[in-house]
């Protein structure tokens, strides 16, 4: 069976990123020359560390869902990946708005 090595296209903070089919979100970020994509509470930059989903350093927000481990998740076509910190409160507000609308 021949490998299906199409590229998968997505965005990080609105900018285009891509990876081979099956590669992780982290791989796409690394391929886009990013080595860090998260800011800690004290203002430090973090990207990959343990690579296997144990350390939670690589967290991103994907399609509105915060706290996603970039190293573990295959990049899907059209994913909107964001910095995990910036939209957390917006995500929560979205949930409130949904709730109120019900």
């Amino acid at each position: 069976m021949s490998a299906n090595l199409n590229r998968v296209h997505a965005t990080f903070e609105g900018e285009a990123i891509e990876a081979e089919t099956g590669a992780s979100v982290a791989a796409a970020l690394i391929s886009s020359d990013r080595v860090a994509w998260r800011t800690t509470r004290d203002g430090a930059q973090r990207g990959l560390f343990c690579g296997i989903g144990v350390c939670f350093d690589c967290l991103v927000e994907i399609d509105g869902e915060s706290g996603q481990r970039a190293c573990m998740i295959p990049l899907q076509e059209g994913m909107r990946v964001c910095d995990n910190g910036t939209r957390a409160s917006r995500t929560a507000v979205d949930a409130d708005t949904e709730e109120a609308a019900q």
């Binding site: 869902e65 915060s66 706290g67 995500t91 929560a92 507000v93 949930a95 409130d96 709730e99």
Partner: peptide
């Protein structure tokens, strides 16, 4: 606090 539903 409904927002807590999605908080881990």
């Amino acid at each position: 606090f409904p927002f807590l539903s999605r908080v881990r």
